[in-house]
Design a protein around this nucleic acid. Structure first.
Lengths: 242, 242
DNA sequence: TAGTGGTCTAGACCACTTC
DNA sequence: AAGTGGTCTAGACCACTAA
């Protein structure tokens, strides 16, 4: 018996995913039946179903009793964790937005900040502020405050060089890996302090997007707070049930 | 053996959800263990795990081996656009809020309305307006304009009787079935016309949520536009990569 | 050490689709 | 009638947590 660092169904899901991505199981075709997969992998039906469920949750498959399982898409994460496509899809930023850093400084979480960040009062953070713009547009789409843990302070010097999200920079610089992103969206007025930078009057309605990035060991290593003035940004999501 | 119209694990999930929402299983407390639930409902562990999985997909629970299951929330968090399963769960367990209907009338789509609804100019819709409230709270969480196709006009008389979303009423009245939901979220000021009803000053920042429901034959049968004044509502979403 | 949830097996019956 | 996925049972062993 080979040693396993992950569940059997996960390994099977990975293997099936490879076959879908490589075109061995093309989009639009039928997957092997559960019984065929049971025999092929030498496991019970329950294990196969769990593996298939994993792929189903990614939206790669649709299933119907009496009919079978159909491959619907190839968009997926690989065995080696570097595909952030699904996260990028969630974040919905056009790929060519750039963050122009205005300031960078250490801060200590007050009660209010701690509440926003989901951390404890007194926690140390590096606060990096700036405006994010789409190339070719005069007005920025948002003011962003990015909070990272102190050991990642160096990102401040690196972001802005490339038009990619900050968490991407953290991932590549420090080998951090995003395992979870939590989003909160709500309305607020544009604060006086940001008004000039985003070229609107203070108090103008704004969409505030808070993103909490969780990495190894359930540690939140980055939180970003983006304030989008009215008419600059719409968050879109799409949910299917086939 | 009693006749079942739905799977056992669904019925169990329904019952557990009731207990969470009613406060019988308060947020922050431990759920009964799997074995306890097995004995209580007289089913196998697999069935209990399937029921608990349903609630977990709504973000109501967190689980940890060796520790137990903790109740985290009474209402489903927002959705993330990756999972078919969670759309099912969300459509199955919508948030419990009641709509108090203020008006109901046929309208013809102007250019602006057509843009919002994603329909053509001149299309006929039934517009149902009202305020939506959570039981026990004094101020409503939003003003909502619901647009349904003319043949579903009758929903106007039925909604408000039960604390369920409008699409639910449409589903049960007309046998329509939601296959896809598109969401748009953006910021705007509260219009003069709604200010009094939602008890804020006109121009107050608000989160606007537009939901487009697609049913059979890719037909959009309902669009809802909800205007949530500042501090009344936060949209949450979550994406995991395990 | 006892108990939890996580994984896995080896069966079974069902509603549904296709032939 | 045969085969599919959907549901369900009754076991088992594991890693992890808490006392």
């Amino acid at each position: 018996m080979t040693q396993r660092s992950q569940p059997l169904y996960q390994e099977i899901a990975d293997e099936l995913l490879d076959e879908i991505r490589s075109g061995k199981l093309p989009v639009g075709t039928m997957m092997p039946t559960e019984m065929e997969l049971c025999e092929r992998f030498g496991v019970s039906r329950h294990t196969i179903r769990e593996a298939i469920r994993q792929l189903g949750e990614l939206g790669l498959l649709t299933r119907q009793a009496g009919l079978g399982t159909i491959v619907k898409a190839t968009e997926a994460r690989g065995t080696y964790p570097q595909s952030n496509e699904s996260l990028d899809a969630l974040l919905r930023y056009p790929p060519e937005t750039a963050l122009e850093v205005r300031s960078s400084e250490p801060v200590t979480a007050t009660l209010e900040l701690a509440k926003t960040l989901g951390s404890k009062v007194g926690t140390e953070w590096i606060k990096i502020s700036g405006v994010r713009s789409v190339q070719g547009q005069d007005k920025p789409i948002c003011w962003t405050d990015v909070y990272v843990i102190p050991e990642y302070a160096r990102v401040a010097e690196e972001i802005g060089k490339e038009p990619v999200p900050v968490y991407r920079v953290v991932e590549s610089l420090f080998g951090e890996q995003v395992t979870e992103v939590k989003l909160d969206l709500f309305a607020d007025g544009v604060p006086e302090s940001m008004a000039e930078a985003v070229q609107v009057a203070a108090g103008t309605p704004a969409l505030v997007v808070v993103r909490r990035y969780t990495g190894h060991k359930k540690r939140v290593f980055e939180v970003s707070v983006s304030v989008h003035p009215q008419d600059r940004f719409t968050y879109s999501a799409e949910l299917r049930r086939d």
